[in-house]
Design a protein around this nucleic acid. Structure first.
Length: 238
DNA sequence: GCTTCGATCTTCT
DNA sequence: GAAGATCGAAGCG
């Protein structure tokens, strides 16, 4: 694999990521993301991603502009944007494009290729290996990504170096293998998952995955959320 | 194997 | 107050 030394400018503009999310997303398929967290290292080969094109994309967290939560999304290409969702899950994006544009690629699925024992422990030993990272929250959990990783810098073709990730400190770091010049031949595209309304599945088929990979997540069309049932009994709607 | 539904809490309107 | 870039358990065939 290709994690190694490379261009040294950790905070500089990464030419491989300084393209639109739509351009970067298919190139990320097959790339290897290595994350070191708490002294433990896990590497994943990305098999499924989704593109989010910033403030022009209704499905993007950056659509309504910059907030405290999504400020990392507006950072320079290579910034890791981690967020907390549904009250219990973390998801991770890699920012691309240009700084201030909120263009990013959501990491949805991957195959663990190193640190499998660590990933299993973090994922509470799922029955099947494919369940280690076949979903955005599962992938983030397997890699040990949470809000503490928000704002890290993930440059392509660089070695992990603690303390160089945007001043995060010695907690860990992340690295991405160099991206190919052209997208892999077995890339498929389709509707994004769980994005409802304008900017949803039909309007933006910006989900990319590698055909035939087991680590691709289950597709679930966006559905309106139901109110949580009040304690005791359900309302008399029958 | 597939489908349905509840859990949980941050963020935004 | 409502919705959300999700997950996993339970129920069903």
């Amino acid at each position: 694999m290709a994690i190694g030394t490379g261009p040294s400018a950790v905070t500089g503009t990464d030419p491989q990521l300084s393209r639109t999310a739509l351009e970067v997303a298919p190139l990320l398929l097959g790339a290897v993301l290595t994350v070191e967290r708490g002294g433990l290292r896990v590497a994943v080969r990305l098999t499924e991603v989704e593109a989010y094109e910033g403030e022009q994309d209704p499905g993007s967290h950056g659509f309504r502009g910059r907030t405290a939560r999504n400020s990392s999304l507006f950072g320079p290409p290579g910034t890791l944007y981690c967020y907390f969702t549904y009250g219990m899950h973390y998801c991770a994006n890699i920012v691309c494009g240009t700084e201030g544009r909120a263009s990013a690629v959501l990491l949805r699925g991957g195959e663990i290729i190193a640190g499998e024992e660590t990933a299993k422990a973090r994922r509470r030993n799922p029955a099947r290996a494919r369940d280690l990272a076949n979903g955005p929250a599962k992938l983030a959990q397997a890699l040990g990504l949470d809000l503490g990783c928000d704002g890290w810098h993930v440059a392509t073709g660089q070695e992990i170096s603690s303390g160089t990730n945007g001043g995060i400190g010695a907690d860990g770091g992340a690295a991405l293998s160099p991206l190919p010049a052209v997208e892999p031949p077995d890339v498929r595209t389709g509707p994004r998952v769980g994005v409802a309304g304008p900017g949803g599945s039909a309007d933006y088929p910006w989900r990319f995955w590698l055909e035939g990979e087991e680590s691709v997540s289950v597709y679930r069309p966006a559905q309106p959320r139901k109110r949580r049932k009040p304690a005791g009994r359900t309302p008399g709607t029958d």
